[in-house]
Every structure is written in C-alpha cells, then in structure tokens.
C-alpha cells in the first residue's frame, strides 16, 4: 500500500502506467477508508446538528 510500487532498483527508468502509492493493489483500501470517513463525518455532523435543534422543539 505504501511506497514505490515498482521493483526495478529504485529508478524511474522504464516506469509506465499508474505510478501512485498502492498502484497494482491496495489502492482500493484507501478508497474504502475515504468513503468511511465521509459517512462518519455525515453521521457525526448530523448528531451535532440534531443537538442544536433539540433546544428549539
């Protein structure tokens, strides 16, 4: 998941295609974590917002 995703002696020579961290496997983990963060943020945000409204019912 971390680090240079190519095993070619630590050089950019000959590198093509996807070059990001997690390329070739593991990148999806980041995506699922990011999705989880968004959902958690909405849940926490809603809880906070609801507590503000509770004083106005």
């Amino acid at each position: 998941m971390f680090g240079f995703p190519f095993d070619n002696g630590g050089t950019w020579d000959g590198v093509e295609g996807a070059v990001f961290m997690g390329a070739g496997g593991g990148a999806g983990t980041y995506t699922f974590i990011a999705i989880a963060i968004c959902i958690a943020a909405l849940v926490i945000g809603q809880m906070g917002e609801a507590s503000k409204y509770s004083k106005h019912k």
């Binding site: 971390f2 680090g3 240079f4 002696g9 630590g10 050089t11 950019w12 020579d13 961290m21």
Partner: peptide, 17 residues
C-alpha cells in the same frame, strides 16, 4: 516521508529516494 518512502526523488540510477 511515511507513505511515499522509496520513490526515487530524481531521474536516473542511483538517485536518492
């Protein structure tokens, strides 16, 4: 430095990572 460790910092062989 943590998640990108190992990426070559410059072109060519022998570049620092």
């Amino acid at each position: 430095g943590i998640v990108g460790s190992g990426y070559p910092a410059a072109l060519g062989e022998g570049a620092a990572t």
